[in-house]
Amino acid sequence: MGAELSLRAVRHRRGGRDVLSIDRLDVTAGERLAVLGPNGAGKTTLLRLLAAVEPPTAGRITVDALDTASGGVDLLRRTAYVTQRAGLLSTSALRNVELPLQWRKVPRRQRRQLAMDALDRLRVAHLADRPARALSGGEQQRVSLARALALDPEVLLLDEPAAGLDAQSRTVFFADLDRALGDRAITVVQVSHRADEALHFADRVIVLLDGRIHQLGTPDELNRRPVDTDVAALVGYENLIDAEVGPDGTVLVGEAPTGLTTDHPPGPVTVAAFASGVRLLPADWPGLPVQVTRVSPGPGHRTVAVAGVVSLLAHVPLGAGTLRAGLAVRATFDPALSTILPRP
């Protein structure tokens, strides 16, 4: 069963500056929370404080009712922390997983069984006797995760566990993680600077910027309603353009229609649009007048750069017409893949 996490008025200073400042955050037992933010946003600091490897400068963090500042080894043993680097010891993969169980005085036979089960769940049981540090990056991360899961923790803290892996290995890694967690009600907090990882994984996501929670919501809320351009950029909106809301709610760039309407009051706004939500239409259709500047192949689509009244990136399905550099087109936005943000 997972544990509840609670942060109250938490402040953390390092090098004379605030690196984390969270007034209130509650994570329910069994919840999967993703922490999304750019480098230096305070994500790892938050995880280190939750893991109780260092106390906050001020404020209170509790795991169930236990204060992390006074919990000691008993508290540490309720959580498992997987760092960005696998941090394996120079011994066999199996021994790496067994050792923390030994520290918890699990009998020898039982810990061997638990360790092998955990390695098996992460599909690395066949590497059990290999020196852990000689394994590939992906294999090491799996062993590191197996080491954490073998402890049957109430809280699992993951610090960008797939950071060093290529795209394909990352996908497989997270599929394995999902399967390994199964229906266990462990509370999981995962830090990531990649929106795809965070949104795929979590029940809720917090966006951390400059050590503060900028937005907290479900992945769907973040996807559809980022609070500002910073969050939109983090979530993966490739296009952020300045626009105006007309008196009738039509969103315009200059005099040109974007294909969007809104109930925002008339005035300046920012349109955030995914590249897959940009439609390129014949030049005599209504829309933003632009010209194709570059067409490059992408996975399952072509990436088309256009410039004119605005510069945009569009993803066009393979085989959808002939697009070439220099072609004049009109661009509009798909309302389902775009959102209107207030412009300060």
């Binding site: 280190r48 893991a51 109780a52 490897v53 260092e54 080894v73 540490l76 043993r77 959580t79 498992a80 922390y81 760092t83 960005q84 680097r85 941090g87 050792l99 923390p100 520290w103 918890r104 080491r147 954490a148 402890l151 803290l157």
Partner: peptide
């Protein structure tokens, strides 16, 4: 040693002696 190693071991439940 890798700087994250001591805190990783602590977080895995090692006491000071271990």
């Amino acid at each position: 040693l890798p700087p994250e190693l001591p805190e990783q071991l602590r977080s895995l439940g090692a006491n000071r002696r271990q």
